[in-house]
Amino acid sequence: MRTDLTVNGQSRTIEADPRTTLLDALRHHLKLTGTKKGCDHGQCGACTVIAGGRRINSCLSLACMHDGDEVVTIEGLGTPETLSALQEAFVRHDGFQCGFCTPGQICSATAMLEELQAGWPSHVTADVASAPALTVEEVSERMSGNLCRCSAYPNIVDAIMEIAGRGRA
């Protein structure tokens, strides 16, 4: 089955069985191995990519359901030479140990900051009718779909808080 995608700004076409998840299409068909397969069941967030401007678990989506969509992966956010602001902050704050969850953390955080800026409430927003504040509790709650088995959470939150305070990811 043919699927046309725009991945990191480039037109890509894959030919794959309909069972192919967006995650497997990115890793196996397009060789974009920055996106990681952790649990493959939407529980860990390692596979987070940005599709149509929204962060999603690429393991719980079929590639063929994204025909015509724009997808951004960690490879589209920065390169080793030109890190995105969040990538650079993760390095500076030591926001990882083994690094396996990091691409998902950074894709998730990049889109999460846009949700925060758009004024989306969260479970810890005291009054859902009001605009959310930028707090450690808000960032932690909004990132709860990304697990880190090395438990680098305090430094991940520090990195995100620094960039959120600057107003751009």
């Binding site: 939407g42 967030g45 987070t48 929204r54 962060r55 999603i56 678990n57 719980l60 989506s61 998730s108 889109a111 999460m112 949700e115 409430p121 969260s122 479970h123 927003t125 859902v128 909004r142 990132m143 709860s144 779909g145 990304n146």
Partner: peptide, 12 residues
């Protein structure tokens, strides 16, 4: 809604 799932899942 916000008490359920994660940001990624709620987007889908």
């Amino acid at each position: 809604l916000l008490a359920g799932a994660s940001g990624q899942l709620r987007n889908k």
